[in-house]
């Protein structure tokens, strides 16, 4: 099963190498990993999507915890959370097909960010399912290039995965 981990780490050089090295060394499968800074400048947050059963997840958790630069890990899979991913897709669309592509874009609330003579580049945000569906709908036109950011996620309501205490 897939798990979504929100991992707070010290914003130190090399921390990504430590985490990536751990996953490769221990044979854990990363689905995606997105990293960026947070509300506090000395803390970065990684959203890691990991594939594995409970035992694997337990090891992922514990092994990550052993890294001195890892401050806090939250497995938010079972919680209510908002998750988003951004995709850029460059798709074949000569002028005759553009209308159709734009209609699809509308359905998914995607935006056109660039136009070439024979291609259209679209930007779409959403959760995993939506992005996959968007990709599938464009596939018939011929996808020339596709890039995804990996998922980022945040708990809903008053719950936090940050360093502060939970509650209002």
């Amino acid at each position: 099963m897939r798990h979504t981990l929100a991992v707070l780490v010290e914003n130190n050089p090399g921390v990504l190498a430590r985490v990536a090295g751990l996953f490769s060394r221990r044979g854990f499968n990363i689905d995606s990993l997105a990293v960026g800074r947070t509300e506090s400048p000395d803390v970065s947050r990684m959203t890691i999507v990991v594939e594995g059963d409970e035992r694997v997840l337990e090891q992922v958790n514990k092994q990550l915890h052993k890294l001195v630069d890892v401050i806090k890990i939250n497995d938010i899979t079972a919680d209510e959370y908002v998750d988003r991913e951004l995709v850029l897709i460059k798709v074949n669309a000569d002028p005759a097909q553009r209308g159709e592509v734009m209609q699809i874009a509308d359905v998914f609330r995607a935006r056109i960010v660039d136009l070439g003579r024979k291609t259209v580049t679209l930007e779409c945000t959403g959760n995993d399912g939506k992005i996959n569906a968007f990709e599938e709908s464009l596939r018939p036109y011929g996808i020339k290039e596709l890039v995804r950011t990996g998922k980022i996620a945040m708990l809903r309501g008053t719950k936090y995965t940050g360093l502060q205490e939970n509650g209002d």
């Binding site: 090295g21 490769s24 060394r25 221990r26 854990f28």
Partner: peptide, 14 residues
């Protein structure tokens, strides 16, 4: 046995 700190295991590619 990889990734389990097995006897004489070292992550030499890492």
């Amino acid at each position: 046995m990889l990734g389990r700190d097995s006897f004489q295991e070292a992550d030499i590619t890492g």
